[in-house]
Design a protein around this nucleic acid. Sequence first.
DNA 1: CGCCGATTGTGCGTTACCACACAGAACGCA
DNA 2: TGCGTTCTGTGTGGTAACGCACAATCGGCG
Lengths: 243, 243
Amino acid sequence: MPVDSSILVKNYLIAALPKKEIARLEHKFEKVSFKLGDVLYESGDLIDYAYFPLTSIISMLYVMENGATAEIGIVGNDGLIGVSLFMGGETTTSRAIVQSAGEAVRMTVSDLKAEFKRGEEFQDLMLRYTQAMMTQISQTAVCNRLHSVDQQLCRWILLSHDRLESDALVMTHDLISNMLGVRREGVTMAARKLAKRKLITNNRGTITVIDRKGLEHAVCECYKVVNDEYNRLLSRGISRTFG
Amino acid sequence: MPVDSSILVKNYLIAALPKKEIARLEHKFEKVSFKLGDVLYESGDLIDYAYFPLTSIISMLYVMENGATAEIGIVGNDGLIGVSLFMGGETTTSRAIVQSAGEAVRMTVSDLKAEFKRGEEFQDLMLRYTQAMMTQISQTAVCNRLHSVDQQLCRWILLSHDRLESDALVMTHDLISNMLGVRREGVTMAARKLAKRKLITNNRGTITVIDRKGLEHAVCECYKVVNDEYNRLLSRGISRTFG
DNA sequence: CGCCGATTGTGCGTTACCACACAGAACGCA
DNA sequence: TGCGTTCTGTGTGGTAACGCACAATCGGCG
């Protein structure tokens, strides 16, 4: 489906491009819709398209040989899926899976590479975004090492909330546990604690944020570190309140 | 100190450049020596130089507000420190600290950027290296989440061994514990187990690899995943035995 | 309405790791 | 040779998370 150029700017990365570059690119985008659980690509797949989420959220998930999973990073309308294309690797060792249904625009590999190779603002922006992504991944490593499941769930809810228009996260505890790489019961426990503190409500299949400020107060420093870095590198935050 | 160009190729990243580009760059390198514990830069510091280790090993370490630390990645003669310079961020949220004394060559920020901006093989190589680094960081996140201290120590020893000419890792358990983000006693226990299996010896301040194959057999899949990706992206392994 | 699958809640026992305290061993230097 | 520092080993008790089994509950659909 060809796109109305006005929707492109829902993706902040595209919106950050000079008007001239947007004009050159807009007819190369194609709009797509994703359902929860759709897989954009598997580990090792050659990739056809780069995806710029508009309302969807995509998780990058590593899948172990024994089937255990852990989330490496999360991308919404703040970024794109397909960094490996202009980095030269063509594939990655992770799976890209839809964590929250919604829409995205996509661009073919060759269009993406051609624009990147021009060496203009598009290239600079993609590289700065990639560094922001690296910071997010790094902080995931740190958080996995040093923080409790409670803290990590809190961080994960904020990361998701930042990338959603709604306050309702349509996710079962089981799915969240796959992202965090912990037991489903662990998520249930942690969610109950947050609900008891009146920061979220926790209904069958849906977590709803009811006290955003409270969550920000409860979360570990990892959240803010990454957020500040997105601000610094991309001149805008993805958070709803910071920056 | 000006460099003898023959030593430059001890760094595999430099060695992978076309002869023409090496020739253009060689007079821009300067040789430096590092002691254990030297800090190349702190989180947030503006960086003056990019460092290409020859015999030294550098750790990228995240330092929490409470002083706890965790390693994000490790760089030896397979790579460079200063990716954020050409990625456009100028700084990172981590500290770069010497994990194993030795030498490196360095290049000024402006020389590095100028060469990168030419858009030739140097740029491609730097970007592919950066993707390899992202894979390493990602796998650190996964390993931190899903694997035991025993497994992580094993992986860490192999990562260090790959980047050393010697079989002796001059590191106290305390320093290793800072890298892994665990207790010193946890490292002591894990090292004793590996020693009991005759994979390493474990003397005051030094861990010596005595059964490389055995370690590779004992390590979690995270090691091989990253190693394969370095192979694929940089057309050569950093491991002493694989690829 | 009633059934069934999906989701969440609970209750074990077990394991891995932590924090702290301190003993012993090795090394380096006077 | 002896002394102090650094490093490693050990013990005790506590906590977080695990694996597993199963009960309770919710929602959709025939």
